[in-house]
């Protein structure tokens, strides 16, 4: 069963847009839970997005994509 990689929902108030500034893991890469996958930026703050599970990463939102809280940016299966 796949696990979604999502933009955290509890970091900021309101409907601010964030941008995926960087993927630090590649599409198709095997990742371990807790590994740094991507960075997203909002309000001049860079947030580290980590793997929620072990598995193979599928990137569904590329770098520079605009995202909001709760959006799925990848999957681990």
């Amino acid at each position: 069963m796949a696990t979604d990689v999502t933009v955290p929902t509890d970091l900021w108030e309101g409907d601010l847009e964030a941008v995926i500034t960087n993927w630090l893991a590649s599409d198709g890469q095997a990742v371990k839970q807790g590994a740094l996958l991507a960075e997203i930026m909002v309000e001049k703050s860079q947030f580290e997005v980590t793997a929620p599970a072990d598995g193979t990463l599928t990137i569904t939102q590329a770098a520079d994509a605009i995202v909001r809280k709760g959006d799925t940016i990848g999957r681990i299966g």
């Binding site: 509890d10 970091l11 900021w12 108030e13 909002v42 309000e43 703050s45």
Partner: peptide, 12 residues
């Protein structure tokens, strides 16, 4: 710590 929100503003 985790809160219900405003964490970004609180840190600033």
């Amino acid at each position: 710590p985790k809160t219900d929100g405003h964490m970004l503003d609180a840190a600033y």
